[in-house]
């Protein structure tokens, strides 16, 4: 929509994108477990220019008591963007957008968690966006599931998340800031790689069915790659020699 992006050429003659990536190429990703000693589990994920810290507390007692579910635990995610995470200061505090993201992340993570093992309890996950540059909910979900695994929460599997989109008429993987702002569609997906289940699906913009299928294909391949990085990050925590 409008703005300065209308005359942008998203894909050049060589098929390269604005930041030099190929259409099916991810931004560089770095994951590390730990970082919040007070939490039961935590993870830091750097993904392109995104920087996201996730911390998991629990299972612990849920208050207020009326929120307790007698048969299962709640997975409560709090997604929060730091005021300094974007170039225009973000007004601190929960807003409509972050509440929505908190909700969809909670639902995605609840799906893989053995919530029946902890009746009446809560598992709190805090997703802090330290630096934002398109696709923070995907980075947040990836980090959150790492933090939960680190906290020793029993889960069916780890959730992996990545977005695809449509820019300049082409389907590309893992939109960058400009592509997200000025592109035609954005499709963030949260997946359970081993089973192929989709636990988060949102879409902004329009795509044809064929385009959607193509985007999902890109996402599935990329998710496998990211899943591998998540597994490596968890194992890396226990391979360091010495204390």
């Amino acid at each position: 929509m409008g703005g300065g992006g209308e005359d942008l050429t998203f894909i050049d003659d060589e098929g390269k994108r604005l930041d030099g990536r190929k259409p099916n190429e991810l931004r560089p990703i770095k994951m590390k477990l730990g970082g919040v000693p007070n939490a039961d589990g935590s993870a830091l994920v750097e993904w392109g220019d995104n920087k996201v810290m996730a911390a998991c507390y629990g299972p612990r007692e849920l208050h207020p008591k009326h929120k307790q579910h007698p048969m299962r635990a709640l997975v409560q995610v709090t997604y929060n963007m730091a005021p300094f995470s974007v170039s225009d200061r973000k007004r601190p505090g929960p807003d409509r957008r972050s509440q929505e993201i908190s909700k969809v992340l909670s639902e995605a993570l609840t799906h893989v968690t053995f919530v029946e093992q902890f009746p009446k309890a809560t598992i709190d996950v805090y997703v802090e966006i330290l630096q934002a540059s398109a696709g923070t909910r995907c980075v947040g979900l990836t980090a959150a599931s790492l933090a939960m695994a680190d906290a020793g929460i029993p889960m069916r599997d780890i959730v992996t998340s990545v977005a695809a989109g449509k820019v300049g008429g082409e389907i590309v993987l893992d939109l960058s800031k400009e592509e997200d702002n000025f592109g035609e569609a954005d499709l963030p997906i949260g997946m359970v790689v081993n089973s192929g289940e989709v636990v988060l699906l949102q879409m902004d913009g329009h795509m044809t069915t064929a385009e959607f299928e193509k985007a999902m294909g890109l996402i599935e391949d990329a998710a496998k790659e990211i899943y591998g990085m998540q597994v490596d990050a968890i194992k890396a925590k226990y391979s360091e020699v010495g204390a």
């Binding site: 299972p59 695994a149 889960m155």
Partner: peptide, 22 residues
């Protein structure tokens, strides 16, 4: 596996030694 843990097989049972958790 449903947790991060160490593989610890006992006969026909597959157990994991947890690395964390409450």
């Amino acid at each position: 596996a449903n947790i991060v843990g160490l593989r610890n097989q006992r006969g026909a049972y597959m157990n994991l030694i947890p690395m964390g958790g409450r």
